[in-house]
Design a binder for these strands. Sequence first.
DNA 1: TTGGAATGTCAACAAGGCTGACATAAACTG
DNA 2: CAGTTTATGTCAGCCTTGTTGACATTCCAA
Lengths: 170, 170
Amino acid sequence: MADGRALSINSGENLLFLTDEQLRQGIEAMFFAYRGFTADPDRILDDLAYGRAHHRAIHFINRAPGTTVNNLLNLLGVTKQSLNRVLRTLISDGLVQSRIGKNDKRERHLYLTDKGRELEQTLSDAQRARMRAAYREAGPEAVAGFRTVLEAMMDSEMRRSFQRLKETGA
Amino acid sequence: MADGRALSINSGENLLFLTDEQLRQGIEAMFFAYRGFTADPDRILDDLAYGRAHHRAIHFINRAPGTTVNNLLNLLGVTKQSLNRVLRTLISDGLVQSRIGKNDKRERHLYLTDKGRELEQTLSDAQRARMRAAYREAGPEAVAGFRTVLEAMMDSEMRRSFQRLKETGA
DNA sequence: TTGGAATGTCAACAAGGCTGACATAAACTG
DNA sequence: CAGTTTATGTCAGCCTTGTTGACATTCCAA
């Protein structure tokens, strides 16, 4: 309860004291960094009358072409109604193609069209540019630590999704 | 453009190759981790009919008691109208107190009430618990890297805000 | 003292979450 | 084969939290 509470951690040779203040700084860093993280794509999307939800859908369809709607909404952590609204506009705008499943005809498999891939490229170029600059500024050891802490912060279910995607892409 | 594009960075003794794939993994890690980061407070807020916006306001008012509305909306990066709606409910629910400025009567200075501090404590306890677990799992060197990369990812304006808050709290 | 700048409030709208209800088609099961 | 479950889509309606526009108050400087 008290603000000065500390927790000691044995970390090999070091002893790390995690005060509430240090944790709070981490929390605030996450908040401000996430704003920066989304800022560049957000600007691009604004001009196209799309939002972050469209970006997320496009990102993961590009990442896992042929994924089903169900798969995608688990990944994104939203309801099918929410996702459907976004997909409908992307399909009718010709950025995403929905193909009925070959084995299971209930399923819809999602693919980016050329136009969709083009937008994906534009968005991820912008986002990667910031990421690259940050990685560069921080250096490789910091980057390794960054990734380790982020993974530790995920819910176990998301961590599994993340791992699966890593294997796919590598 | 090609997926195999790499950028070499001279990092002391090492040579780090930042492929698009590595950057994309960082992007996805940010996405999944942020979900985890907000999940615990979100659950608490749901029961109280508050949202993330209320949490953010409460957090920063606690962090900088007596801050003005203008100050706060710069920190949060939203419009004054958006913030005002949140503040109105917090004030009428007796979590936040708004005092008219002594020197400049246009300004409102914001403070948490006892009740407000109580909720802040509950929310930040939950968020810190996850942070603490993640830090613990990752180890102190990873934590340092984590913080470094996050700072490098912020817009310069946010980085200044972040620095200012760090000095205040320490 | 008057006009502009700063600050905050109210109203209305849009995006994108959510739930509930329901339709369809396909797959599975007894 | 009949009945149930699963995957998907759609409609309606709600909430939160962004946005702009209009406006009141206060301060300050010409």
